[in-house]
Nucleic acid binder design. Structure first.
Lengths: 139, 139
DNA sequence: TTGAATTCCTAGTAAAATCATAGTAAAATA
DNA sequence: TATTTTACTATGATTTTACTAGGAATTCAA
């Protein structure tokens, strides 16, 4: 039930961009240094976020990335799903096409509840929420 | 965020034993056949459950396994943790010893919420709950 | 007492996933 | 034109997952 580094790095990356909102395009290397993450690995991760339109990019000198929207308009769930693929605890819940034993499956109800519980958190927490919580705690 | 086969098989195994409560010791092969799971793999899984006292075993002919308690006295969380080790979404939440960046970590609060959400489901669902829900739905 | 059934325990192993690293192409800027 | 930066693909190491194999120990029944 672990969130992979991909997901965790994506979150830290997006939070870093959110905290630097308004500073224009930020080169990925700067984020990588601040977050102490391999910049080449971060590159792969942000690539997905970029293709899905979660961040905007600018090539070349003075280029970099920035959020496409405001921090409060990103849910953690959207970010995690973009890089991790799915947060479902079992694959049957993934694509809507149930497995062949769906009707006789004792456990599917439990897994749905787990999924709903996770979704309830990640879909109702925004990047801004996280930053605000943190600032409130450290002031 | 997937529950591994180990966890899912353990659940099905325990549910199978729960549904056969009162039938004495049940050989693992019977469970394996009913659940269509490799009996050798199940053996490994139940071994952990057995060492932790979740099931009782009897060796030799007419031997097998049975629940150590009643179905309503097992939470799904206990079973999953026994075989999977931990349900925490990140390792920092595992052993209580926080990582070195704990205080400056923006995201730990989020991960705690996710963990609490998952725990809220699995620690408040018993084997008997699952069976009752299923029977209610299929009557 | 022998044989069958069954748990107990340890190793090994193939495939998949994870976590990167490397290198090159393309674009933008100064 | 040189430098900076993203875009994209390929590759590799390590770890985890999901099993498989085999034999020892135990129990029961004939």
């Amino acid at each position: 039930m672990r969130i992979s580094t991909k997901g965790r790095y994506a979150l830290r990356l997006m939070l870093d961009l959110a905290m630097n909102e308004g500073a224009g395009f930020i080169p990925l290397k700067a984020v990588a240094q601040r977050q102490e993450i391999s910049d080449k690995y971060l590159e792969q991760i942000i690539h997905r976020l970029s293709r899905q339109g979660l961040v905007e990019s600018a090539r070349g000198a003075q280029g970099g990335y920035r959020l496409a929207r405001k921090g409060e308009e990103y849910s953690v769930g959207e970010i995690l799903r973009t890089v991790e693929g799915s947060l479902a605890p079992v694959s049957c819940l993934d694509c809507g096409t149930p497995c062949d034993k769906f009707d006789s499956c004792l456990t599917i109800g439990l897994y749905k509840k787990i999924q709903d519980a996770i979704d309830g958190v990640v879909d109702n927490t925004s990047l801004a929420d996280i930053i605000n919580d943190y600032r409130a705690k450290h002031s």
